[in-house]
């Protein structure tokens, strides 16, 4: 029985790979529902909504995920790394981008596309169109308008590239790969579970067989019935000579 207990514990631990694993440990916590993360408070609620509304629509209708992140500072970390961190933890689709803005910084905001884009498109082509989009956004007079412009530019760029055949194929392949990975993982898990299950079953089966054999062999035994012949005029026993002395 202990083997079965270990199997149950193992399976529950294995399947309890946290759904929050992707977000556990991220210092900025969970993704905000409206795709705009502004801990600086530089945007008013109305301004944040104005930026977020089209982004939510694009996400819903076109599966393009643009996340806007406004941070007070990023220290010495390259903006690309910071943006990638947000993309890895928060992005919900394959076609995604992070608009990263540090208020007061001259070369901000930045637009960083997700892995599918950046690994598929030629780097110089991608950089050129992004730089153009970024510079248009940076030219805006206010922080709000800069962020809004950058988010629109990012969505437009994503939309444009998404339409391209290269990206379409890449997304398709990526999805196929992902699905295969999931299946393989599940397959491995199932095989492992079956293996452990079988290993646990073997002693159980042996135990059951042994128990059954013991039970069968431990039952009452009956001798065949006999016709009785009497001797020496004795009704029940003819006597014998089984004696042992001390």
């Amino acid at each position: 029985m202990s083997a079965l207990r270990y199997l149950i514990i193992f399976l529950s631990l294995t399947f309890a790979v946290s759904a929050d694993q992707a977000q556990s440990g991220f210092k900025y916590g969970e993704r905000p529902t409206n795709s705009v993360f502004d801990p600086t408070g530089i945007l008013t609620v109305k301004e944040a909504d104005e930026i977020a509304t089209p982004l939510v629509e694009i996400l819903k209708n076109e599966e393009i995920d643009v996340i806007v992140v406004v941070l007070p500072e990023i220290g010495t970390a390259p903006p690309l790394h910071v943006a990638r961190g947000f993309a890895e933890k928060w992005s919900q689709t394959e076609i995604n981008a992070v608009v990263l803005h540090i208020p007061g910084q001259e070369d901000s905001p930045w637009i960083f596309p997700g892995k599918v884009m950046s690994s598929t498109l030629p780097p110089d082509v991608m950089r050129q169109s992004l730089e153009e989009a970024e510079s248009r956004a940076r030219a805006e007079p206010s922080e709000f308008s800069k962020i809004k412009a950058a988010s629109i530019e990012a969505a437009d760029v994503m939309r444009f590239w998404k339409g391209s055949e290269v990206i379409r194929d890449e997304v398709k392949i990526s999805r196929q790969l992902q699905a295969r990975l999931i299946f393989e993982q599940r397959d491995r898990l199932i095989k492992l579970s079956l293996g452990i299950g079988a290993a646990a079953l073997i002693p159980l089966i042996f135990g059951a067989v042994f128990f059954f054999v013991r039970i069968k062999s431990s039952g009452a035994k009956r001798f065949p019935d006999l016709r009785v012949t009497h001797r020496l005029g004795a009704p029940y026993s003819g006597g014998n000579n089984a004696v042992s002395g001390s």
Binding site: T229, G238, A242, V243, S244, G245, S246
Partner: peptide
């Protein structure tokens, strides 16, 4: 200190006197 076994008609068939010796 002697011991002996006496068997009824239906029981006597299965063990001979010699068979009882180890037990006795």
């Amino acid at each position: 200190g002697n011991t002996s076994v006496t068997t009824g008609y239906r029981a006597e068939v299965w063990l001979s006197d010699e068979n009882w010796v180890p037990a006795l």
